[in-house]
Nucleic acid binder design. Structure first.
Length: 735
RNA sequence: GCCGGGGUGGCGAAACUGGCAGACGCACGGGACUUAAAAUCCCGGGUUCCGCAAGGAGCGUGUGGGUUCGAUUCCCACCCCCGGCACCA
């Protein structure tokens, strides 16, 4: 068949339609209770300067869903904004002297142009940037609400410190002992810090993870690991010859008769006291100090030889009544549980190795259901399996689970312990000693203590800073006009808090702000959020699985408990899009392997680029970028254009279809048309598998060509009608 | 070690509920059109063997078993790759 080459000039089409969408405000929406709503959101962007293909993939995925849902009759909210605070802009300012505000706003403007040229259907009137006071004032407002409820609090603590970025990092921002952003090994530092009490929601966050049926299992697993719930018991071992007791946390109280020693972490408060009565207090203290530093290094390197030393003190096993020596061990973590553990070499591999190394006794306290009590002399490793209790006094013969219940109950009755739940999750440290972030709206008064800035004085605006030196702490502390302020309570001289908030605070609730982006009385009108939220479809990179996505779930609960939202889970369906790699690496400016979409837009137009990116692989899958297929997508669009142009005149005058008089060829094409509609709809809507939707559409065109050719030599009355139906359907599916 | 995901042509991939493995695309080869090229259109292709050919036979979805009339799909055992967590008591 020879269909003449059409004038397919996508660049002109892009301009024409993008102008029409812009002028007609085509994607703006308002609440409309008469229509079902659909909130489609892609993770907003850090304005680094240029959108690369990796970002673009995410926005296209979201746009496909948004456009599908509009065609299906939903009232679709599809907004975009900018996660505009953050270190890169401040670090650039230190190098170049350009103020972060200037560079950030410039970057936003450039990237917005790129997204518009891609034809992403955003409701731009709701655009927000977190670095603007009309956004970050609500961070401050919410901080104060959390402060009032004890969810934001200040304490001195050991924190993760990045010496390159010169700031504190949250636990979630430390990856393999290094800064998540710059990769520098994290140091420990003692600082007064603001924390958000995310641990208050640990169980809530964990329990409802089970209900997130439309989240990837991978993400839920990561969050469960991160929260790290352990069910166990706290039990006190009375000190022998000292007042008081040492409390331990254990998940295996059923093995307590096998606790032949007790281990303190080097950070444990009793370590200092025991040192004073030791034979050589200095050696005692030095050794403990060595363990404390070792632990940090050990977590990074992974391998540290287990070692410890005897304190000279004993405790009494509350169940067996036996005296057990107290040791300090380098592998016991000060910050987890009570910082002390009972040593059960029979059931715990670390304790086993420790006991073997130092000749401590091992007692077998569990026997298998179908076997005898093991001979400890034969053991080469611990036996953590559950079974029936042995050598455990009155508890002998009980199954492990039952024994745990009885022993815990007994401990409680005797007032020496209780069942408890331990989490690995820690409170979220949000103070940052940097400039380019939300000022923490607190005032330190020598007389009144820590006082919140009154609501009517919000926002605490970020002052202009002339010089970026990168030296010292908290740049805001160098601005006397900012720091010095009368106390709002007593009126006497006081000082502002000079730390700023972690930028993850900004991103933890922005999806609510989109529902009511210009509210200047509240972060959002609860009625509007009730209409739009939760977000029905959320897509973004899996790298946020335990940062942004757990913080956002936390904030949803805070807003819920403030009575402002009526759901707990902010994102119903989560799609974690696979990264786009170039030469096996993540694209980044520093690696110099960024693929810029603008060149491809100029070459092939927005439709070809979008179609190609969607056709490479399913959206969750990581892909290696090659330019190879882009031409193919362009060629296919030209084929669509060509066949549509060929049929245009005949189609507009074709009579209505009469199903009874169709030829076999016509029936086949008709069947293909409707099958394609079914497949594309299921692929986009249900399976979220854009690549096979593209394949299905290509197949329809592949059938349309020979049909067109056959009709050229032997046209039928119904042919144009069947072709029209196919082409109209196709165009709709493509759109 | 624990948890999650995966392993299918030269490449990206598809196979939705156990039913013709490799749809669709990229790259490639052949042909038509053209003075020629580009573009376009048509055809071809997992692999081995037999055949001049049309065609035929065998093997084939990480490996080894199993269930079944039938297995990429279900079951058992194992290997490898990717991601997450990890001295958490």
């Amino acid at each position: 068949m020879c269909i003449p080459v059409p004038d397919y000039h996508p660049q002109d089409l892009d301009k024409k339609w993008q102008k029409r969408w812009h002028d007609g405000r085509a994607f703006e929406v308002v609440e409309d209770p008469s229509r079902p709503k659909f909130y489609c959101l892609e993770m907003f962007a850090y304005p680094s300067g240029h959108a690369h293909v990796g970002h673009v993939r995410n926005y296209i995925i979201g746009d496909v869903v948004a456009r599908l849902k509009r065609l299906q009759g939903f009232n679709v909210l599809h907004p975009f904004g900018w996660d505009a605070f953050g270190l890169p802009a401040e670090n650039a300012a230190i190098k170049s002297g350009i103020h972060p505000e200037t560079s950030t706003l410039g970057n936003i403007s450039h990237m917005k142009g790129q997204l518009q040229r891609l034809g992403i259907s955003y409701a731009w009137e709701r655009e927000l940037a977190t670095c603007l006071p009309d956004y970050y004032r609500w961070n401050q407002w919410l901080f104060i609400r959390m402060f009032e409820r004890g969810l934001a609090y200040r304490r001195r603590s050991t924190v993760n410190w990045c010496p390159v970025d010169n700031t504190v990092l949250a636990n979630e921002q430390v990856v393999d002992g290094a800064c998540w952003r710059c990769g520098t090994t994290v140091e420990q530092k003692d600082l007064e810090q603001w924390f958000f009490r995310i641990t208050a929601y640990a169980d809530d966050l964990l329990a409802s993870a089970d209900e997130l049926s439309q989240w990837p299992e991978k993400v839920l697993t990561m969050q469960r690991n991160w929260i790290g719930r352990s069910d166990g018991a706290r039990v006190s071992f009375a000190l022998d010859g000292w007042p008081g007791a040492i409390e331990v946390f254990t998940t295996r109280i059923d093995t307590i008769y096998g606790a032949t020693f007790l281990l303190l972490g080097p950070e444990h408060p009793l370590v200092g006291q025991f040192a004073e009565v030791a034979a050589d207090p200095k050696a005692f203290r030095d050794q403990a100090a060595r363990y404390r530093s070792q632990d940090r290094a050990g977590r990074v390197s992974g391998e540290v030889e287990k070692e410890g030393f005897f304190t000279g003190q004993y405790v009494v096993n509350p169940f067996s009544g036996e005296r057990a020596p107290v040791w300090v061990a380098n592998f016991v973590l000060g910050e987890y549980g009570t910082g002390a553990v009972m040593g059960v070499p029979f059931g715990d591999q670390r304790d086993f190795e420790f006991a073997r190394k130092y000749g401590l006794p091992i007692r077998a306290v569990i026997r298998p259901l179908d076997g005898d009590v093991p001979d400890v002399g034969d053991m080469t490793e611990s036996r953590p399996d559950e079974g029936l209790l042995a050598n455990s006094g009155p508890y002998d013969g009980l199954a492990s689970a039952e024994a745990r219940r009885r022993l815990t109950a007994e401990a409680q009755t005797r007032g020496i312990g209780e069942g408890t739940v331990q989490y690995r999750l820690k409170d979220w440290g949000i103070s940052r000693q940097r400039y380019w972030g939300t000022p923490i709206p607190m005032i330190h008064c020598p007389h009144c203590g820590v006082v919140a800035v009154p609501d009517d004085q919000l926002p605490v605006e970020l002052p202009k800073l002339a010089q970026f030196t990168g030296r010292g702490d908290s740049p805001l502390a160098t601005i006397p006009e900012f720091v010095n302020i009368p106390c709002p309570t007593c009126g006497r001289a006081a000082r502002r808090e000079t730390d700023t908030m972690d930028t993850f605070v900004d991103s933890s609730w922005y999806f609510y702000r989109f529902a009511d982006a210009h509210n200047d009385l509240l972060p959002f009108d609860p009625a509007k959020v009730r209409y739009w939220c939760p977000v029905d479809f959320y897509s973004g990179g899996v790298e946020h699985a335990i940062l942004h996505l757990i913080y956002s779930r936390f904030f949803a609960r805070v807003f819920r408990d403030l009575g402002m939202v009526d759901h707990s889970e902010p994102f119903t369906h989560l799609l974690t899009q696979g990264m786009v790699l170039k030469d096996g690496n993540v694209m980044s400016k520093s690696k110099g392997n960024v693929v810029d979409p603008d060149t491809m837009l100029e070459q092939a137009g927005a439709d070809a680029l979008r179609l190609y990116v969607m056709s490479i692989a399913p959206p969750e899958k990581e892909v290696e970028w090659t330019d190879n297929g882009l031409d193919g997508s362009f060629r296919w669009l030209a084929r669509v254009w060509r066949v549509a142009e060929h049929w245009h005149d005949a189609a507009v005058t074709a009579p209505p279809l009469d199903a009874a008089t169709l030829t076999a060829d016509e029936r086949a094409l008709r069947r293909k048309t409707h099958d394609t509609i079914r497949r594309v709809t299921a692929d986009l809507d249900v399976r979220k598998q854009m690549n096979t939707a593209v394949s299905a559409m290509i197949e329809l065109v592949n059938d349309l060509y020979p049909f067109t050719d056959a009709q050229r030599s032997a046209p039928t009355a119904q042919g144009a009608g069947v072709a029209r139906e196919a082409i109209e359907s196709l165009v709709l599916l493509v759109s």
